[in-house]
């Protein structure tokens, strides 16, 4: 997987992960992939809903030592 940008949103509380993700996705091109690291427990539902609504694709997510990782392909 070719990752264009990595966003570290660890330790940030709502609404920051989504606000930062939105800023980061604005900086990449359609088809490119953004990797996001977050610790907010709501991040999974938040990012899934956000990606769907914005026409982006949540390719994959995983959890590792309480850190949630997401890969979103810009639509």
């Amino acid at each position: 997987m070719n990752i264009t940008k990595v966003l570290d949103a660890k330790g940030l509380a709502c609404p920051m992960p989504i606000v930062k993700t939105k800023k980061a996705i604005n900086e990449i091109e359609s088809g490119q992939i953004l990797e996001i690291h977050a610790t907010d427990k709501g991040a999974k539902n938040d990012l899934t809903a956000w990606a769907n609504s914005g026409g982006h694709e949540l390719i994959k997510h995983e959890e590792e030592n309480d850190v949630f990782k997401f890969w979103i392909k810009k639509g």
Partner: peptide, 11 residues
Amino acid sequence: YIIANGAAAYD
């Protein structure tokens, strides 16, 4: 303001 910022991130 949290909802407002979230909605702005929702475009």
